[in-house]
């Protein structure tokens, strides 16, 4: 059992596996996103009611929440592979971490962007130094810092290790974002984000939101694996198997 895992952990073994998985993740992502969009736009109420009477702009929830979740989840993945790479000194883990970072940065930017466009009509501002907004911005800086640090160091092994350390240190931000909701009495705080729990979101809104989340999650797998394959080829270009792969894939 363990032997199998280590076999998959070699770049040469994982390269074709990733290649076979990408089309499936892409298809699942496309299907789920289309279902989520259709559901969110055509099968839900145009406006909310009750104590939170938001208008059509509440639909930004279908991209905002999934993007914010993915930004945090991908950071956990980034830090996780960084830690595994530092501890076990496995090449593939560092490549995995490097492949995750750009997609994570994109989702973090999207969480901030969609949040700004949602905040303007509902709260009355594009930006506020709300704890959650601030910590999400810091997460964006961390992704950018990881990418910048990695590309600033020419030696790959050093770059991997230095950037991995930054990723692990930055890990402290994820629980901060997650917990940076309001103090117990929401009317005595400056924070604009409120405690969210799935029970207070109606199923007709929750289901398309979760569908979109799964869709973007699947998309992330496809995008990260695609980037990982390019990284593997670049880094392993001295190995014989890469020659066969190149010969095969440039003629095909």
């Amino acid at each position: 059992m363990t032997i199998n895992w280590f076999k998959f952990a070699s770049p040469a073994a994982f390269y074709p596996i990733a290649g076979r998985l990408i089309p499936w993740f892409s298809r699942v992502a496309l299907a789920l996103v289309l279902i989520g969009l259709f559901w969110g736009f055509f099968l839900t109420a145009d406006q909310l009611g009750g104590s939170n009477p938001q208008k059509e702009y509440y639909r930004i929830i279908y991209v905002h929440v999934p993007a914010a979740w993915m930004s945090m989840w991908l950071y956990l993945v980034l830090a996780g592979w960084s830690a595994i790479g530092l501890v076990f000194n496995t090449r593939l883990s560092f490549m995995m971490a490097k492949a995750v970072a750009p997609t994570g940065a994109i989702f973090t930017f999207l969480a901030l962007w969609t949040g700004a466009l949602w905040g303007r009509p509902s709260w009355g501002t594009y930006w506020d130094w709300d704890p959650r907004l601030t910590s999400e911005l810091l997460l964006f800086f961390l992704y950018i810092g990881y990418i910048a640090l990695h590309s600033a160091i020419d030696d790959t092994r050093r770059a991997d290790r230095a950037a991995a350390l930054l990723a692990i240190v930055g890990l402290v931000m994820v629980p901060v974002i997650f917990l940076s909701i309001n103090c117990p009495d929401p009317n005595q705080c400056a924070a604009l984000h409120q405690r969210s729990d799935p029970g207070s979101i109606h199923l007709s809104i929750l289901i398309p939101m979760l569908t979109m989340t799964l869709g973007l999650w699947s998309y992330s797998f496809a995008a990260v694996f695609a980037r990982l394959r390019t990284i593997i080829l670049t880094r392993e270009s001295d190995n014989a198997w890469v020659r066969d792969v190149i010969a095969q894939e440039t003629t095909a």
Partner: peptide, 15 residues
């Protein structure tokens, strides 16, 4: 700035 609570309900359900 306005705050809102985290209930996301269609109007008829909220009623």
């Amino acid at each position: 700035l306005a705050k809102h609570d985290e209930s996301y309900m269609p109007p008829e359900v909220a009623d």
